[in-house]
Amino acid sequence: MHPHTFERLHAEGLISESSVEKVKAVSANKLFSLHWELKTVLYLGVLLLSTGLGILVYKNIDTIGHQVILLFIAAVSAGCFYYCNKRKQPFSFSKVPAPDALSDYLLVLGCLTFVSFIAYIQFQYAIFGNHLRLAGFIPLVVLFFCAYYFDHLGVLSLAITNLAAWMGIVVTPLRILRENDFNSETLIFTGITLGVLLIAAGELSRYRNIKAHFRFTYMNIGAHVLFISLLAGMFHFEHQFYLFIMALTGTALYFYKQALKDHSFYFMLILTLYSYIGLSYLVIRLLMLAEDIDLGAVYLILFYFIGSGVGLILFLINLNKKIKQNAGI
């Protein structure tokens, strides 16, 4: 903010004298914020420390003995939880601000070490016997509990990715396509179930007003998992693919309505892109059926992509206008 700009605006009668004074006062003691720099350093520190400790423990299992390591991991975890619990503000079903940046990260560290603790204890002593699902389930419950109890979005994402892993899917952004085998039918159906489950959880959060700000995280991961699973189903099932097209259309319509209601540009974008992939697949498939693959079909495909691209651009521009107008009301 440059004071002279606002002085000019004042001279033109657009803003009042007192507003100019306020601008001057604010720009005079402008502080230099190191907030993001410090937070990044802190985050990297937690990342390095937890990774380093993990390897340290793994490499030295033989020399230091399991009990000592377990005790150490438990101590770190307990220490983190103790600190966070002491600093936290009273629980509420609405949004509770984090007490400070440090406990934000210590909570993540505490949760991670807790997950390691359970994994270690199961590996070494098999306390859950052959019930591996149970061994995975306990950290899951603890993670979800922590997410709600401490009101932490990062831990919620962690809980959701653990839930997905427990069900057998990798859902982190960079790995969802690389590390899942979407040719497996079980995986496709698991993905659909998980997606629906997460979306339902997101809707419930808002509907019952239980941590309503968690909705975005649920909906976001849910939407990607559901869309990708439906598309995978469409590509995989040669004969029943029309069922998946119907489901895809339904899902897209549902998100379209939601996005219009919430003025969410983000969901508009992802539903458009996923539907576009589905539509393009359908068109190419139909063209391949109609003619033997000759030059005519190739021309048609090229025309389809150019035409549909232009169409979608107009659609998005129109949507942008629509959401903006509604947002103004």
Partner: peptide
Amino acid sequence: FTPTPAPAPGFNFGGGTGGGGGA
């Protein structure tokens, strides 16, 4: 801090990837 899915049968604490813990 990404977990690795499905503690499959024969799950072992392989270099810290198991259970998505510290490493």
